[in-house]
Design a protein around this nucleic acid. Structure first.
Length: 435
RNA sequence: GGAGAGGUGGCCGAGUGGUCGAAGGCGUCCGCCUGCUAAGCGGAUGUGGGGCUAAAACCCCACCCAGGGUUCGAAUCCCUGCCUCUCCGCCA
């Protein structure tokens, strides 16, 4: 959520900034509503003051045994006016809220301008696209031939966009999870500062999703359990960030670095037909998520650090990737700046997103009321929040199967992962007659 | 699922209809005292909004889990919801 005052004071700047992400928003309703609300509120407050006075006077008189009927009548009249104002105020405020909660974040000035993903800018790349002496297969074929991945039978169980990893496939997923968590949590891997591991709920309330920005606008993307009014998390960002909702932090606690491995659940409404095969776009996938709660003064540098932390996972696994800066038109609703990490996918002969690292500045903090006390002014300020995948596990499995496949279908395990695989260095196709 | 208890400021905790934004304690901050530390003494110390202001001081409104209700007046009474705890049952 944007600061209402900022909208009123820098209307033109913000209007232009939002236009750069393809949103044309007319702020005049906000101006009108705000004026109307503040006038009405002042009137309402004056009435409350009057009622408070009357109630006090009645108390005093009663104690002294004096009559109070006239004051009580007056108070009743005032109360009617108050009730009337309150009804009007509530209606106005909910209209203003609806407006404010639906406005996306303002891009940072250093975000490249553009209309769509075609205008995203490659910031750097690492490794070179894997070359093969044969035609590389898509990961679902590699996985099926290795007997480590199933979708056919799984669809009978859960429908489309679900899969089952089996044997070494499941082991690979577990190894990746542990590898990533170690990389982020162990001090020897993290000279800049280790992440604290969290194990969080997968079901959350509406308020948490409002806080991080998935609601109210993107309800159709979420799985929902109406009986209990709980939503399945689309990312660990939601429980992690909201862990600090409605808190005032001491600046010495910042930055807070958290990591959590969770399943993530997404309905993928509107993605019909896209990436329908394989592990790229599933209703449920594992992800290791990094979250920072940090100081506004350092959030920009912190964003670079967080991105570098996610990159270390890819380079550690020897996967070719590139970092792109999302242009204004491709930026997510809550984000002020986003780097996507894209891994090379040989079967598609292109890079595919495997991590998204964003700086939300105070957008989520304002929604979730996460603040800290500024030691200089002694006043509360909103923190900045950052998060990024470190990494999406399913997509990492896919990338490894594709980039490290051999002509006979054998997949070599990266050195860094071998200890986590119990010493296994490769996954080979089952011999004929075996399964 | 059944029975009961409870949710008050950073924390503990008092407060059952009016002078309560809330006693007392702890913590924190400032000052005094002190060779240093501790103790001691004095003072300050919630959040949001509005008015006034150069800025403060100051004044007003709201907030004692949330939402309703009763009342001239609610932290206090009633209802609903949420959450926590205890016991029983069930269960990974």
């Amino acid at each position: 959520m944007l600061d209402k005052k900022r909208i009123l004071h820098e209307e033109e700047t913000i209007r232009e900034a939002l236009a750069s992400r393809g949103q044309s928003i007319d702020f005049s309703p906000i101006k009108d509503l705000d004026l109307e609300i503040s006038q009405m509120k002042q009137a309402w407050e004056a009435l409350r003051e009057k009622r408070n006075r009357l109630a006090q006077d009645i108390g005093t008189k009663k104690r002294n045994g004096l009559p109070t009927d006239d004051l009580m009548d007056e108070s009743r009249t005032v109360n009617e006016l108050i009730a009337k104002d309150e009804g009007l105020l509530a209606a106005l405020e909910s209209r203003l809220d609806e407006f404010l909660w639906g406005i996306p974040n303002v891009p940072r000035p250093d975000v490249p301008k553009g209309r769509s993903e075609l205008d995203n800018v490659t910031v750097r790349s690492a490794g070179i696209p894997t070359s093969f002496s044969f035609t590389p297969k898509p990961h679902w074929e590699v996985g099926a031939e290795l007997g480590i991945m199933d979708t056919e039978h799984t669809s009978l169980v859960s429908g489309s966009r679900f899969s089952t990893l089996i044997g070494m496939g499941a082991r690979l997923e577990r190894a990746l999870t542990n590898y990533m968590l170690d990389l982020h949590t162990l001090p020897q891997h993290n000279p800049e500062g280790a992440y604290k591991e969290h194990s969080v709920p997968f079901l959350v309330r509406k308020e948490a999703l409002m806080g991080t920005g998935q609601l109210p606008k993107f309800k159709e993307e979420l799985f929902y359990c109406p009986e209990d009014e709980l939503y399945l998390i689309p990312t660990a960002e939601v429980p992690l960030t909201n862990l600090f909702r409605e808190t005032i932090l001491d600046p010495s606690e910042l930055p807070i670095r958290m990591v959590a491995q969770t399943a993530c659940f997404r309905r993928e409404a509107g993605a019909a037909g896209r990436d329908s095969r394989g592990l790229i776009r599933q209703h449920q996938f594992e992800k290791v998520e990094l979250v920072w709660i940090t100081n506004p003064e350092t959030s920009s540098i912190d964003h670079e650090r967080l991105t570098a932390d996610a990159e270390r996972v890819l380079s550690g696994l020897g996967l070719p990737y590139r970092v792109i800066s999302l242009c204004t038109g491709d930026l997510g609703f809550s984000s002020a700046k986003t780097y996507d990490l894209e891994v090379w996918m040989p079967s598609q002969n292109t890079y595919r997103e495997i991590s998204s690292c964003s700086n939300f500045e105070d957008f989520q903090a304002r929604r979730a009321q996460i603040r800290f006390r500024d030691p200089n002014t002694k006043k509360t300020r909103f923190v900045h929040t950052l998060n990024g995948s470190g990494l999406a596990i399913g997509r990492t499995v896919a990338a490894l199967l594709e980039n490290r496949q051999g002509p006979d279908g054998t997949v070599r395990i990266p050195d860094a992962l071998v200890p986590y695989m119990g010493g296994v260095t490769e996954i080979s196709p089952p011999k004929k007659g075996q399964k």
